[in-house]
Computed example of a mutant assay.
Amino acid sequence: MISPERMRPAPVSDEDFTAAQAITAQAKPADGQVHRYALTAELVLGVVTARRRDFTAHRAWMIRGYAVGIGVGTQLFTQPAWLVASGPFTPASRTGTMAAARLIDILVSE
């Protein structure tokens, strides 16, 4: 059951959370496309909460960051399953299998 009242204060302010979400690690590969990584925000929030000595929130943010990072390994299961079931990748199916891997890891971490 989800309570309408907060059990404890937020680990970071709304402004800090929004600012952390805007932080990205950008890589520009040969195709010129910019890639953004959600892992950066989770790690920043993990450090912020640890510095505030809120180790429960720190643990939660670090687990979330790990879940985002490990999604690449989970793709080793989602992509071969797609290839067996449907054949070669299209851009949409590749995106779908990557999203499925991330979703699996995020659901397990939460």
Rank of each mutant, 00 (worst) to 15 (best):
S3T: 10
S3K: 03
P4I: 08
R8I: 08
R8M: 11
R8H: 11
A10D: 15
E15N: 03
D16A: 10
F17M: 12
F17G: 03
T18R: 12
T18V: 06
T18L: 12
A19L: 12
A20M: 08
A20W: 08
Q21A: 02
Q26Y: 01
K28T: 15
Q33T: 15
V34K: 14
V34Q: 14
H35A: 05
T40A: 15
T40S: 05
A41F: 06
V47P: 01
A50V: 01
R51P: 00
R52A: 12
R52C: 04
R52N: 09
R52W: 09
R53D: 11
D54A: 11
F55I: 08
F55R: 04
T56G: 12
T56V: 08
H58T: 14
R59P: 04
W61M: 14
G65I: 04
G65H: 09
G65L: 09
V68Q: 11
V68E: 09
G69C: 08
T74Y: 12
Q75T: 11
L76S: 02
L76W: 12
Q79S: 03
P80V: 12
P80W: 15
F89E: 01
T90R: 05
A92R: 13
S93G: 01
M98R: 09
D105Q: 08
E110H: 10
E110G: 11
